[in-house]
Design a binder for these strands. Structure first.
Lengths: 348, 348
DNA sequence: CTGAAAGCGCTTACAG
DNA sequence: CTGAAAGCGCTTACAG
């Protein structure tokens, strides 16, 4: 009894059976009010903490969920981790982390490892263009509504529409889209949304990954050329690209948003802090995390946790929120030649 | 046997005892080569996976460690999480995440929750100016060598020295330090290091938190004024501040590094991608993570895991690495009045 | 309402 | 080298 007190300790001190103590503490089998109170009081007094191992062994449930994150380059990593942890915690679950290092095979291995470690279910934020399937285990996939295995996600398409409209309302017509990789469902949906806001016009797109394959890691994106050709806005599919765009333009002497507007996606931590602060779309992480967790719990025992009905309503994804900041402003009036000359001059 | 096979299944199929199977699989009690091989083969064949709950209950060890991260604003969150997870995984441990939401009380609660969840030990990356003490449980604290409860950390002081030297070597003498909060041990050490590189001269410091308390969240840092007064470099204590500085300066028409150099700390994900890419100091996360984990395992059973002797050698912290990129360059020759006038003009 | 008993899957002395 | 037995802490039918 020097170490953690257990059910037997409580039972012994009270002269009752372990079963009764267990029942009283769990509130399951019926126990008289007085005895129940006495037991609870004693448990409190002894600082009783149930042994997760004991419970796990007898129930077959660990009360732990696994979270598999794609990799360090997923800029929303902390947001996912924290929100999933919080949502799980509220429902009595702990969260074990796994990491796929951006490798599809590792992703599978990570899932398996977590299952072997006893996770009752897994939340996975998958790597682009990878499928999470064939595990006969409760899983929730957070990706894009258009992804085949998707469980919950933000409504990236309409997020794109919203940001596209925002730019259009500001008078921008010559918009360039900037994305990382066309194989990402999330990015595809965002891009499609942005285009939709422009009547599905065929806006030019810069795919960074392609560009870097040609010109090398972290190469300039060559955005200044687009500006010279009349572009007045860059709609980026992530704040990360927006940041890259803003700095590249600023470095070339092009004012944001004076000469050109830039928008991002995700409202990453620093998006509101840089100069100019970045206009972006934010997803409702808290809600997404809750839905994912509840979806798993429902698979775990359908009668205790009803299916999150919202999930059905949300087949298009959880709405995103437009955050307007300084990086987007009115389109400059149709540029005169002198304006363009000025841009040329400054960027030499 | 429809579900996961267990030791009994293996034992029964082979007509041996569970104890022997356990011994064979763990390699502890001695078992004849042939029997051992047969058992291992059968285990493999059945796809045997040990039950963590069963093992935990009988050994009193969960083989899980807890990781408490300060909050979402800790920009190294993903790095810590991934590296700790990896280091723990290599030694057979899983990692449960906890989150202190930047609140000292929550930090304590998070630690306790993880212990209650059965974590064998805890790694904590504490919030500024908070102590992690009084838990009679294996703990490793990753902070700054000068922190009272510190276990492992980067050598922030000498990191500061290195970056200070770098600037000085480039000819910068009018250097302004930019930090968030003087209460942070990490930041204090970095600042002290930078100053040391300048013979402990009393370099001006901008503490962002103070500034924001006066002027409001995300206010401009007013760096242009320093430039007008002759500053040629800003040594920032985090890449985050460096980014803020770079964009603020660029927005004001001040060229980085042409007019002014800017350096950061931590080599955050985007530091190499913005324009100009940010010169920074990187910590050896992998090594730090390993040391922290091994320190915990040593506390857990000293005879199985020897104390990481390196820990003693590293009382000053794990060396940091200087990453030179484009945001730092030679100090402009002593500025003429016309230069200053130009800066004035551009920043109006 | 209360309790005796079995069992979850493993490990660990201890005998043989 | 191998195995019978006890025990880790809890939960869950089942009796009483």
């Amino acid at each position: 009894m020097a170490s953690r007190p257990n059910l037997s300790d409580i039972a012994r001190q009270l002269g009752v059976s372990v079963a009764t103590v267990s029942n009283a503490l769990s509130g399951k089998g019926r126990v008289s009010r007085e005895l129940g109170d006495a037991i609870r009081r004693k448990a409190e007094e002894l600082g009783y903490i149930p042994s997760v191992a004991g419970r796990a062994l007898s129930t077959g449930r660990s009360n732990v969920l696994g979270l598999v994150l794609a990799d360090i380059n997923q800029p929303l990593f902390p947001q996912f981790a924290l929100n999933i942890e919080e949502a799980a915690g509220e429902l009595g679950y702990g969260v074990l982390i796994g990491n796929s290092r951006g490798d599809p095979q590792e992703q599978e291995r990570a899932i398996r490892r977590l299952i072997e470690r006893g996770a009752d279910g897994i939340v996975v934020v998958p790597r682009y263009d990878t499928r999470v399937t064939g595990h006969r285990w409760p899983i929730a996939v957070i990706d894009s509504p258009s992804s085949p295995d998707n469980t919950v996600s933000a409504d990236h398409f309409n997020g794109g529409v919203a940001i596209g409209r925002h730019l259009r309302d500001l008078g921008h017509e010559n918009v360039v889209i900037v994305g990382l990789y066309s194989g990402s469902n999330v990015q595809k949906d965002r891009v499609a949304g942005i285009k939709a806001a422009f009547d599905d016009r065929d806006l030019p797109i810069v795919w960074i990954q392609e560009l870097e394959r040609e010109r090398g890691q972290n190469c300039p994106l060559g955005l200044v050329d687009f500006v010279k050709d009349g572009a007045t806005a860059f709609a980026c599919v992530s704040d990360l690209h927006a940041l890259r765009a803003v700095t590249e333009l600023q470095q070339a002497g092009i004012a944001v948003p004076g000469d050109v507007s830039v928008t991002g996606f995700d409202d990453l931590g620093w998006a509101g802090v840089v100069a100019p602060a970045i206009t972006t779309m934010r997803m409702d992480m808290k809600r997404i995390a809750h839905l994912a967790i509840r979806h798993i719990l429902h698979q775990l025992d359908a009668n205790k946790h009803e299916a999150p009905e919202e999930l059905a309503e949300l087949s298009g994804g959880v709405p995103m929120e437009l955050i307007i900041r300084q990086s987007s402003g009115p389109a400059p009036r149709a540029r005169s030649n002198t304006d363009l000359a000025a841009v040329h001059a400054r960027s030499e």
